[in-house]
Design a protein around this nucleic acid. Structure first.
Length: 676
DNA sequence: TCAATCCGTATC
DNA sequence: ATACGGATTGAC
């Protein structure tokens, strides 16, 4: 029922008029009379009888005979609504794109092309791929890989798919599991320079060869284009569709329908694709799950990674989480044994990785005489000059402006944390003492746990470095920029400077000779739980575009080499960093070690909701902290095993409020992306 | 005594 | 949300 009220988030029984008996099937959109009004709804199941003791009303209308909501997606949507303390109607709005009647009536492009490209996949991996840790899940016995969409292959193709996975000891076994339809789950650490899109395309092809479907989510349109090209090379055309909101309503609905009608075996897309219907789902995958674009901005704010993992669990599908870096959430999957690790051995990592060096900190930078013009430390100068001299392109990564005025230790610069709840300290607008962004506790006397220092300093924003500045510094070298306004996909493999913001770094033909990571200070001192993780994610993503050290590839990071995130970059060891990060969050009681939820709204409303919520006994409340517009925010945290109870309690409390017509809205967010 | 209003409950 | 019924309050 498409009504926004949480207390109406349940099923209602209606009679089906005889003339709709054949067409009104589960998954169709309907209109029903509900109270006095006509509302949109979903037909979720047909039944012989009802437990409702009063007179039933008839379905008013069948909006369309198209059963757009697949049973698997309906179950998933319910689970996602429950997990995020939201309503089914909200999740279904995200899961099923708006109807486009004209597109529905278009002649269905025959399923003919599903046969055409058949023999391009389905080969066994090379025989060298032996060692096979068992990726199969401990639960869920596998349904045989048969179905209406069964693209079996006789495997007489000329190419060798999946050979690139042989760089990773457990890679071939994972691909074999996909081909055999087993629900293997993996966290993959991509090597520097890895053609991740091609690896993903191979994983999809293996799944399809095993007769099952795949849903793959990437962060942005550029990654999607890359994966689309790789998958087209792997599968040919007509066997997959791209689903993204950016394509516009018509194209989006057309792609959606093709998937729902079982015309394609794979759907790839941005987060809009996380709910895409695919017959006989065998693989869900996400690339770069640390990118915050994976977090949905509409209620109930589900994260693509969590949706896909839930989906894998419910559908008995395999799961692949890959990236150049590793999130604490992915690390948790590895440590709990839910997923297996796919990573290259150290020798291979060393052979593929550029030489990475830190330059030290701001003070050193200021002392550097050559640094005046473009504020480049001498090491960065040298690396850039050497690369340009070798006619190689140089990438300069510059963070975008915008950060929170965090506070750190005046001596060692460790970010200052609240001694009550370990939240980040920050300066308010006034010249008052810094206060905790989470619990509001005012830090009158802070002592740094790292060095014992008692002085505090505000973290200043990094200077905005411009392409012109660099252009002046390196006269005669072409300078390109890639960022918000214009994002470059690829640059030629010749001498030139590329200034890019994180996420907009173009690939260089043959790899960059040097990658300079500037202004790291602002990134590292952001008052954010994920500051270190995010910094490393951005650095590794950019540094992965450099040539291996043996081919002259160098990376210079303008940061203090003793910081953990910098260490992880120097050693090219994201798994080490993720394990460290997760351990720290366990210690401090942060996600993903604990489950958190935020409740935002007018002070009385927030207070009232939490007062009547039947929270689990272990629940801790932090706050309130001001949230702008006369609003405030409370955080609730519980151990992971109490997460379902927390969501239920918050949902029930919201339902109680809505039934009592509470006017001022309260926003509930489970796993809020930022914790303040 | 009637009606205006408040509150809790139901909406198949 | 929107509507309804029952209880409560207020004014004639």
């Amino acid at each position: 029922m498409d009504v926004p009220l949480p207390h109406l988030d349940r099923l209602f029984d209606y009679l089906v008029p005889a003339e709709l008996a054949d067409q009104a099937v589960p998954g169709t959109r309907v209109k029903v009379r509900f109270g006095r009004q006509l509302v949109d709804g979903w037909l979720l199941e047909r039944a012989q009888s009802s437990t409702h003791d009063k007179q039933l009303a008839y379905l008013e209308k069948l909006v369309s005979p198209e059963p757009v909501l697949a049973p698997e997606v309906a179950r998933l949507a319910r689970a996602v609504a429950d997990r995020y303390a939201g309503t089914l109607a909200d999740v279904l709005r995200l899961a099923v794109p708006p109807r486009h009647a004209r597109t529905e009536r278009e002649p269905d492009p025959a399923a003919a092309n599903a046969d055409a490209a058949d023999d391009r996949t389905g080969l066994e991996p090379p025989a060298s791929a032996e060692a096979s840790p068992d990726h199969a899940a401990e639960s869920a016995p596998q349904n045989p890989a048969t179905g209406p969409n069964d693209h079996q292959s006789d495997g007489n193709a000329a190419r060798v798919p999946g050979a690139g996975w042989c760089d990773y000891p457990t890679g071939p076994a994972f691909l074999r599991a996909l081909r055999e339809g087993r629900p293997a789950r993996a966290v993959w650490s991509a090597l520097a320079g890895e053609d991740w899109a091609r690896r993903y395309a191979e994983a999809i092809a293996a799944t399809v060869a095993g007769g099952r479907g795949a849903v793959v989510v990437v962060a942005d349109g550029r990654d999607l284009d890359r994966l689309d090209a790789a998958l087209t090379a792997e599968l040919g055309t007509g066997r997959h569709v791209c689903l993204s909101a950016a394509a516009g309503p018509t194209k989006r609905y057309r792609a959606f329908l093709a998937a729902r009608r079982g015309r394609v075996a794979a759907v790839i897309g941005t987060r809009a694709a996380m709910f895409a219907p695919v017959d006989n789902l065998g693989l869900v995958a996400i690339f770069d799950d640390g990118d915050d674009l994976h977090a949905e901005a509409r209620a109930p704010y589900p994260h693509a990674r969590e949706v896909l993992l839930t989906r894998a669990q419910l559908a008995g599908a395999a799961a692949l989480l890959g990236g150049f870096t590793r999130t604490a959430e992915a690390q948790l999957l590895v440590e709990t044994g839910w997923a297996k690790e796919i990573a290259a051995d150290r020798a291979t990592v060393r052979a593929r990785t550029p030489a990475v060096a830190p330059t030290g900190d701001d003070p050193q930078l200021a002392r550097d005489p050559g640094a005046e013009t473009a504020r480049l430390p001498s090491l960065a100068w040298q690396a850039a000059r050497a690369a340009l001299a070798a006619d190689a392109p140089v990438l300069v990564q510059v963070p975008r402006r915008g950060y929170l005025p965090a506070v750190s230790c005046g001596d060692c610069r460790t970010p200052a944390r609240c001694d009550q709840c370990a939240g980040p300290l920050a300066l308010g607008s006034a010249q008052a003492a810094p206060a905790c962004r989470w619990c509001g506790h005012v830090a009158t006397a802070h002592t740094c746990p790292h060095c014992g220092g008692r002085r505090l300093r505000a973290a200043v924003t990094g200077a905005r470095r411009t392409a012109e500045e660099l252009g002046r510094a390196f006269t005669g070298v072409p300078v390109r920029t890639s960022g918000r306004e214009e994002v470059l996909t690829e640059v030629p493999g010749e001498a030139g400077l590329v200034v890019a913001t994180p996420g907009a770094e173009p690939v260089a033909v043959g790899g960059y000779g040097a990658v300079l990571l500037l202004d790291t200070w602002a990134l590292l001192t952001r008052a954010d739980l994920r500051a270190g993780e995010e910094a490393l994610r951005r650095w590794l993503t950019a540094a992965a575009l450099a040539r291996p050290a043996a081919a002259g590839g160098r990376v210079v990071v303008v940061a203090d080499g003793s910081l953990a995130a910098v260490q992880a970059l120097l050693r090219w060891d994201p798994a080490w960093f993720a394990a460290r990060e997760l351990a720290e969050r366990r210690e401090l009681g942060f996600p993903p070690a604990m489950r958190m939820a935020s409740v935002t709204g007018a002070a009385e409303a927030v207070g009232a909701l939490l007062a009547q919520a039947r929270l689990p006994a272990e629940a801790e409340q932090l706050g309130p902290v001001p949230a702008g517009d006369d609003k405030e925010r409370m955080l609730v945290r519980v151990p992971r095993r109490r997460a379902p109870e927390l969501a239920t309690a918050l949902r029930d409390a919201a339902a109680l409020r809505s039934v009592r017509k509470a006017a001022d809205p309260v926003r509930i967010q489970v796993d809020p992306l930022t914790l303040f």
